[in-house]
Each structure stands twice: as C-alpha cells, then as structure tokens.
Design a binder for these strands. Structure first.
Length: 1016
RNA sequence: GGGCGAUUAGCUCAGUUGGCUAGAGCGUUCGGAUCACACCCGAAAGGUCAGGGGUUCGAGUCCCUUAUCGCCCACCA
C-alpha cells in the first residue's frame, strides 16, 4: 500500500517542493540557456504593506505563464522585485512614528527619517518575498530588485541625465495640493473630499472708470450687474473663497455672453488691492441660467474672478491668457507678501491691505468679506454646500499652491508619439483619433528627430483588446508629466542649482563648461521672470544635472555653492524603467540583450496610464524597442458586495491565511478559475470563527480539486504498484499495443489530447479560466468519474492490466504536466511518486512522456491526434449508463440491488454495448441481458431512451413513478416537437437557414416523434 | 461631464463568427459508508438571460433605449 495519506495535506507537501526547487535552483535562468527568450517582469509590489488577494491573483497568473513557457522549452525568466512607492510608504511610516513616538517627520533630520523608512521597507520586502515564495512563485530570486537599490538608482540617474540633456526634462509650474498644517504637498489620492456648508459670496468689482471712454454700456435686464443710471459701474463675481481675490489678475466672461461685447477692452480696479486687471473672454466661464440643472449655472453671475496662483482652473485660464500669477499665501496658509506678491501692489497700498497681511486664510476670508460689506460692494451671501478637498492627514482644507516643479516632456513625439505608434494596428482606432496621428517611421516629426526604422511599430497588443483604448486615449490627451515630489523617500533629483546675477554666471562657471566636464554635466538656466516666485531682478538660476558616477563633479558644484534639489522623483519614474533596470540597464548586459523586450506584462487596469504608459515610452526612447509585446489586464477582486478590498473596510484577505486554511494550490486554482474576461470578480468574504481571519468559501473548489488530484494519483499509484508486482520487479513493462486497448483507453487518450490543445489555446489567449476549467472538466469529469471507474476491472485482471496501466500512467503523467503551472506544489510531489513507481510512461505516437526528475522542468505535453470514433462511441455508453442510473433513482431501486437491463440497439451501437458489457454492468449496477435490434418491451420494465437506444430495466414497478415519469417526458416531447414543427413550417427558415441545420431539425423531430409514439 | 464595463439558477460565474432542449461550481432536495477520494459517489429540482423597442428564418449573443450597479479619468466659481 502506498504511504500517501487519504486526504491531501498542503502543509506537508508545499515546503518540500519549495525546498527542492530552491536547492536545485530551478527558478534560475541564464542568458546562455537554450530556448527562445521569454521574460516577465513582476509589477513590483509597494513595500507599504503585505500582499493582498489582488497580488495573489496577479502573481499566480504570471507564475502560470512562466512555468508554462519554461516547460515548453523557452528560456523563461520571471524577474521579481519591489517598489519603494514614495508617497505611500513615507506616509505609512509617518503615521506609525506619530502614533508610536508622537513625533512628526519634521522633528527628524532627513537622513534619520529616511533610515526609519528604510527599516520599514526592509521588513516588508522580506514579508512580501516570503508571501510570494509561499504562493509558489517561480521568480528568479537571484535577480531580485528594488526600485531604489544601487543598480536601479544608476538607471534612474542615467535616464534622468539623458532626458535632461535632450531638453526633455524642464522646469515648470504647477499647482500642488498644499496642506498648510503639515506644510507638505499631497498627492491627488491623498486628498479627501468632504462636504462642507460654505457660502457663495457675491462681490462687486468696480469698472476702472478712465478706461470707460465713449458710450456707456447699457446693462438691461441682467440679474447681476450693476444697474446704476443704466450705466455699468461694476461686475459681480461669485466665489466661495473670497480671500483669494487678493491674487486676482483678471475677470473672465464667456464670449457668448451678451455683455461681453460691451465690456471688451475694459478693465477692473480690484478692490482693497487697487490693482487694475483686465476683463478677458474665455469659453470656460459658465453662462448664468437660474433654471438650469447645473448648479454652477444657477449660482453663476457670468463673471469669473481669475486667481491663477490659487485655483487649478484659473491657472489654466492664466496660461491661456498669459496672466500674471500672484501668490498671496505663505506656506502656513497666512496672507503674505513674501511669496510671490509683487511689491508694486504695496507701493501705494492702503492700510486695509497692510492689515490683512499675516492673517490666517480663514481670518482673512472674514476680513475681506467685512471690507466688501463696509464699502457696499458685497451684493449677496448665499449658503452653499459643496465638497472641498481636505488633507487626509491634518484634515484641514487643501490649498492649491503654485510652485516650481520638474517636468518630463512626454508630449514629445519621441515619447507619447512613439507609444501610439507602437500600438497594434487592429487595436488602434484611427477614425476616433482626437487629432493625433502617429508619425510614420520615415517622416521627420518636427522635433528635429529622425525616427529610426523600427520593428516595434504596431507590435504592442492588449488583452482583452478593449484596454487598448484606455492606452490610446491617455497618450492622445497626455500632458507633460510632473516628476518632482516634495518628499524625502525616493530618488533625489540629480540636479544642483545656484542663483547668479544674470551677467556673471557664465564667467563663474566657465571652468565647469570645459571639455573635462562636458559629457558629465547638462545645464539649463531659468531667468528670474520665469519663476513663479518673485526673485531679484536680472538673476539667473543655473541648474546642473550630473551624470551618474561623477561624485567629483557633484562635490565641485557644492564647493561653488550649488545645492542639490531637495525634492525626489515621482515613484513612476523609477518603475517606468523597470523592464530595463531589472536587467541592469544602463549596463550592456547579456541579460538585457536576451530578455528585453520581455514578453508579457500582467497587470491591473488601474495603472495602464500610470505605469504601462511610462514603461512603453521609456523603453522605446532609451532602447528603441518595446518593453513587452503583450499586456494582459486581469480582473480586480472585490468583496461580496462589489466593494474594493481594503484595510479600512476590514474586508481584505491575506493570501497567507488562505494558504494555511486551503493550501497554496487551492488558492491558485480558484483564482485562475475566476480570471475570466470581465473587469471585476466578486469574492464573498467571511470571517472564520476559529481563526478570526477573513476567508472565502470560494476557495473550497480549489481545495476539493486538489484533493481529487491527490486521490486520483493515489489510486493510480496503488494500482501501478500492484501491476508491477505482477510483472515482477525485473520484468519490463508490457509493450504498448494499441490494438489491445479498450474503448475507454482510446477515449481517454483522445480526450487528453483534446485537452492539451484547449490548454495551449487558452493560455496563448490569456483565457486562464478556460485553462482551469478545461483541466478541471477533463480531470474530474472524464478521468476520475469515468475512466478510473471504467478501468477498475481491467486493473484487477493480470491479462489486461499491462495495457491499461500503460494508458493510465501516461495520461496521469500528462495531466500533472498540464496542471503544474496552475497547481505546482501538489503536482510536483505527486510526479516524484509516479517516478518511483513507474519511471517509464509514454505512449509512443499518442502521448510523449520523457520523464524528468522534476516536473517543473519536464516537457509541456504536445497535443496529439484525437480519435473521433472513440469520442463518438464512448459518450453513447455514458448516456446509456446515465439513463439506467436515472431510472434506478426515479423508481427508488435498492442501491445494492442489481437490476436486469435489456437494450434495443442496432449496428455499431449494439456492437459497442456488447463489447462493453462489463463497463455498463459495473457503472450502472445492473446485469445486462439481451441487446438486439428487435427487442419487444419486457413486462414490468421501466423504459428510457438514450444514446439512440431503447433501454428496459426489468423489475422496476411503481405505477405512480411510471406515470409521473411518462407525463413529464411527454410534456417535454410535445413542447419540443411543437417548436420544431413551427420552425419547419416557416418557409423562410427552410429556404434561408443553412441546410445542415434544417436537416438536423428534421432528424431530431423524427426521433422525438418516434419516442413520443412509443410512450403511448 | 468623458470613457470602460456589468446585469444569465438562491450565490459566484461560463456561454466562441447569431443556430441542438442556455451550462458549471456552491447551495437545496432525494439516495448512498462501494476496497482513490464524504474535501466523496449517484440522481434531481431550479432560469420571461435587468425592462422596452429594433434587425433577422432565428437574438443571452448584433443595434437603439430605459433602469440599476461598478471602475478609470476629468471637474466642482
């Protein structure tokens, strides 16, 4: 007897398989290994937290692909690593430090705090790695990377330097989400929208009188505005943030507004400040309409105060109309003249303006409103409930705050343009194009850049194809990418800067610009007027970007008083280089040549724009090839209510919990089965009362399947051991002789070959559900339910045992191979057992099995021929057996009692039944009597039609069951017959439908009518 | 506001270029300790394919429309 336990115990098997894989370095690949290259880079998980179920899915799929291609003979590699995830990681550490030590980031020196984050990263990197290993991920761990380790830092420096040198990185302005309480910039996703009760203030802005020469504009019938002696004296603006009016640099009106023409060229004298600002025309302004559904139109006056430095939309308007941008706030949210407010405003400023300085923004709001009221310029105040961005950390309202930032010019044709050109022709919708046409390869693109002839054009494909649109739309509407972040955790921007008087900078830096430094430095200058901050006039800020590995130059710059930029790069800058940096670019390594481009990127849809886009642009730019040719976008896992899984909702599931409750293979199988073409899958979450941990009953199917696989192999091993005993230890196994195979043997081999083809097809098209389902149905439905049952008598018969053992061993061997990528642990260990019991197990010409010591490196099965006759005949037996079982159940036959069955059948079917008497008798618990074509119905027999035969089960007498059965069947038949007759009576059907379908309907109708006639 | 998607059995989901009586697993009901497996075996019940229109000989599948839900992007004077 085998020593395999009756129930599969994952905990006893998984570590053993993992140990062997690791010890024998079976995940490792070298560029010199044989096979065509196949590489996958892991989407590096953030080191912010342990992996969740979404990662488990993502990584299971990558492992399936890697193991599949490795077995198929490719030189396959899966490159693992983690992402430093700038903002997210710094934030979790800040939270923890605040909670545990009561300290803020600013209470530490920069280095000191970065060390704390580093400690966190180390801890989570280990945990993540352990999780991936527990899941069975066959990553090449010798090549594990981290987006901020030395080789990756070098890649970032090199990429930044090259882009900087080419002018693709520049200094620009941007409104950041500023938290005045913690005095940090926040990412968009760190801003929480909260509904607040605020007010709409309607402020009157007087028109500047001296510009109003000539005829007086008449304002008639206007709701807002200034009717005094039929002359327009002021305009009214509506705002929720009156204090920002101090920074207004224009008032805008929609050009379609009837008042626009009258006001063209007029100016406003801004109250309190006395600044004279223009009235401009812009489509963005909403026309007032009290009856509109749009709340904006209800509240609007038609006049929009434009404050470019303190509102994102106003900023855009400011850019369009080249308006000055005046920042009136200090970083702490108080009104300040020190951060970009031109001194001219204060030259003859009144006391009223001076008094506002130093006030907090909310005090200033009250004071400004008060001032307008006092001066009869406050027209109205209305209550208004609206959502306002708040800091998720300090919970104070966010202030849009203008600042200088570094930008990457992704709008350049060499970046976004190239990404579009890379798209597969079938997936690129040129008709829909928003005006962008990818530049063809032989054209100069207008950037002075002659594109190379490419073999990557049109080679990037998305699965499912609908995601190509997301990619395309993003690049057609792309805006330059702000790459600097006001953080401590990340790649420090490799730029040093110093401000010089405009006339002296060149002399001061002459020696740096000599040949010695030429290739190690790239320089850009920004004049004082380009900055959004007010700098001394006639100054020039010089920015020097230093190429990697030039510490001497950096030191020289610092000696000259240059300072390194305090900001770090956006996380996506380093992850955008991932398919290159994991292979140690910019080093020209054999690995880089071998595995870049990688093959497939496997990711979730939320980062198509953030990540996929950047990798494509960067890889094309730096290496003139694609980072990968196929992008597979898998579903997102939600909880049972369709919500995202998250810590705060408490509905997250830890893969390790599932591994301990169900096993890694069970988890992997279930996730694979769930990976259909849809966008989302729901995973009902339950709390396990015993462990107190979240789990899901969905994983039972995987656990059950693994147990089935375990027991099928256990059964086979027991039988094969038995067979070996009969053959004698020295005897060679019986030669394969197909002529001695049973129908069941031929059928299962054929079914297996069909399954291989289905698996190949499914995996090639990323239809993981079809792969899992195909394996499941074959293994459980065909192999276990039918074949293993069918061969039991043969396996006990020494005369027939040999051939059946050959088939059984080969089919099981092949099944383990097919299943391995999905459920690697259990299949690996069972394969070893099979090797012990039966080292040779091929079926020449049918199933090739070159045994290998380790399944992970065994050959992927090659689909052989299917046997149509076996696949046509065996199902007839299945139907007949099913019909007999059904009768037994309906008539409540004693389960142990053998009933006598006779069958009316003819021709080939009759022959098949005759030669498979044993099978029918065993599986239907019956004694098979006469099988002839001219059978008259025996007395006291229950009757059924199946497999084209009439079946009589004797001794089943139950009149009520009989009546019920007949009535039910008769109803079905009458209904079907009516529908078919109806179809055939329709002349259009007969004339227009394909003839084979008409014929089919006719045949079927005849069959059903015959059955109905016999029912009486 | 723009885009993508979903709605099929009590639950979670398949359903190919439109074509057999719309399938699976779980759950339910009935029967079963049979020597691979009770994480099992055998059988059964259960569906107006979200609603409404259209195209077609024929629609779960294609088109229009309504409703509900989800995600991404943009925005909120």
């Amino acid at each position: 007897m085998t020593d395999l336990p009756k129930t599969y115990d994952p905990a006893a098997v998984e570590p053993e398989a993992n140990r062997v894989w690791t010890d024998e370095k079976l995940f490792h690949a070298e560029p010199t290994d044989p096979g065509k290259p196949y590489a996958i880079v892991i989407p590096p998980p953030n080191v912010t937290a342990a992996l969740h179920l979404g990662h488990a899915l993502n990584n299971t799929l990558q492992d399936i692909l890697t193991r599949w291609r490795r077995m198929a003979g490719d030189n396959a590699i899966w490159l693992p690593g983690t992402d430093h995830a700038g903002i997210a990681t710094q934030t979790v550490v800040e939270k923890r430090v605040l909670a545990e030590e009561g300290k803020r980031r600013t209470d530490f020196a920069r280095d000191e705090f970065v060390k704390k984050i580093q400690t966190w990263k180390d801890e989570y990197e280990v945990r993540i790695t352990e999780q991936l290993k527990a899941m069975g991920c066959s990553c090449d761990w010798d090549r594990q990377a981290f987006t901020m380790d030395e080789p990756r830092a070098k890649a970032v420096r090199e990429a930044f330097f090259q882009l900087f040198k080419e002018g693709l990185i520049y200094r620009g302005k941007r409104l950041v989400n500023w938290d005045p309480a913690t005095q940090t910039a926040l990412a968009d996703d760190e801003v929480e929208m909260e509904e607040v009760d605020g007010h709409f203030y309607y402020l009157k802005y007087p028109l500047e009188s001296e510009s109003g020469t000539g005829d007086s504009p008449v304002a008639s019938g206007q709701r807002h505005g200034q009717v005094a002696h039929a002359t327009m004296e002021y305009v009214t603006v509506a705002t929720t943030r009156p204090e920002t009016m101090l920074g207004d640099t224009a008032v805008a009106i929609n050009p379609k507004d009837p008042r626009a023409a009258q006001l063209r060229g007029k100016k406003i004298r801004l109250p309190i400040v006395n600044r004279v600002i223009p009235i401009i025309e812009d489509d963005y302004v909403v026309l007032p309409d009290p009856k509109s559904d749009d709340p904006k139109a209800q509240f609007a006056t038609g006049f929009l105060k434009v404050t470019p430095a303190h509102d994102p939309n106003d900023y855009e308007i400011g850019l369009r109309h080249k308006l000055p941008m005046i920042n009136v706030l200090a970083p702490d949210g108080t009104i300040s003249d020190q951060h970009g407010w031109p001194t001219e405003d204060f030259d003859q400023a009144g006391e009223d303006l001076q008094n506002l300085l130093g006030l907090d923004r909310f005090e200033a709001r009250r004071a400004v409103v008060e001032w307008f009221k006092r001066n009869n310029l406050l027209e109205e105040v209305k209550p208004y409930r609206h959502s306002v961005g708040h800091s998720y950390r300090s919970h104070v309202p966010i202030e849009p705050y203008l600042s200088d930032q570094w930008y990457c010019k992704v709008t350049d044709a060499r970046l976004a343009g190239a990404a579009l050109r890379a798209m597969s022709r079938e997936q690129f919708e040129s008709s829909r194009s928003t005006g962008f046409q990818p530049v063809s390869s032989d054209q100069n693109n207008g950037h002075g850049f002659q594109t190379h002839a490419t073999d990557w054009e049109g080679q990037l494909k998305f699965f499912p194809p609908r995601y190509a649109k997301t990619f395309q739309t993003w690049h057609e509407n792309i805006r330059d990418w702000c790459i600097s972040r006001q953080l401590w955790w990340g790649h420090r921007i490799p730029v040093w800067s110093k401000m010089f008087p405009a006339s002296t900078w060149h002399d001061a830096l002459k020696h740096l610009l000599t040949r010695k430094y030429k290739n190690r430095l790239a320089t850009t200058m920004v004049t004082s007027s380009d900055s959004c901050f007010v700098l001394p006039r006639d100054t020039m800020t010089v920015y020097m970007c230093v190429a990697p590995g030039n510490e001497d130059v950096e030191q020289e710059l610092e000696r000259l008083g240059f300072e390194q930029d305090p900001d770090v790069l956006d996380t996506w800058f380093s992850s955008g280089l991932w398919p290159m940096s994991t292979l140690n670019w910019p080093e020209q390594t054999p690995e880089l040549e071998k595995w870049n481009p990688t093959h497939t990127l496997c990711t979730a849809r939320e980062i198509i724009t953030l990540w996929v886009s950047r990798m494509v642009m960067f890889n094309l730019y730096f290496l003139n090839r694609l980072p990968f040719s196929e992008v597979f976008v898998h579903a997102m896992i939600q909880d049972g209510e369709g919500r995202k899984m998250s810590k705060s909702l408490g509905n997250g599931v830890d893969p390790l919990d599932i591994i301990s409750s169900h096993g890694a293979d069970a988890m992997r199988f279930t996730l694979t089965l769930m990976t259909t073409n849809t966008q989302d899958v729901r995973m009902p979450v339950e709390r396990d009362p015993k462990s107190g941990k979240n789990t899901s009953p969905k994983f039972d199917i995987g656990r059950n399947f693994c147990n089935k696989v375990w027991n099928a192999v256990r059964f086979a091993i027991m039988n094969l051991e038995e067979a070996r005993r009969h053959e004698g230890t020295e005897a060679r196994r019986e030669e394969v002789d197909e002529t001695r195979w049973s129908l069941a043997d031929r059928w299962i081999v054929s079914r297996f070959n069909r399954t291989i083809a289905a698996c190949d097809e499914a995996l090639t098209n990323y239809r993981f559900d079809q792969y899992a389902k195909g394996c499941y149905d074959f293994f459980w439905g065909d192999l276990c339910d039918w074949y293993l049952e069918a061969i039991k008598p043969a396996m006990r018969d020494p005369a027939r045992q040999g051939q059946t053992a050959n088939v059984l061993a080969a089919v099981l061997d092949g099944s383990l191979r097919l299943l391995h990528p999905m459920i690697p642990f259990i299949t690996e260990v069972l394969y070893w057992r099979l090797n012990e019991v039966r080292p040779e197990r091929g079926l020449p010409g049918r199933i090739m099995c070159c045994t290998s010591p380790r399944l992970i490196r065994a050959a992927w099965p090659r689909a052989g021929e299917v046997t149509e006759t076996a696949e046509a005949l065996f199902p007839k037996l299945q139907e007949i057996i099913g019909a007999i079982r059904n009768l037994r159940n309906d008539y409540k036959a004693d389960p142990k009692k053998r009933v006598t069955v006779s069958i009316s059948a003819s021709g080939e079917t009759a022959g098949t039944i005759e030669s498979n008497r044993e099978l029918i008798e065993l599986l239907a618990t019956c004694t098979l009597g006469r099988v002839t074509s001219d059978l008259s119905a025996p007395a006291n027999a229950a009757r059924a039609t199946a497999g084209g035969c009439e079946i009589f089960v004797e001794g089943l007498v139950d009149e009520s069951a009989d009546r019920e059965r007949s009535a039910r069947r008769r109803d079905e038949l009458v209904k079907s017959i009516a529908s078919m007759k109806g179809r055939l009576a329709n002349p259009s059907y007969v004339s227009k439908a394909p003839p084979h379908l008409v014929k089919q309907t006719q045949d079927q109708l005849a069959e059903l009518e015959a059955e109905l006639a016999k029912l009486g």
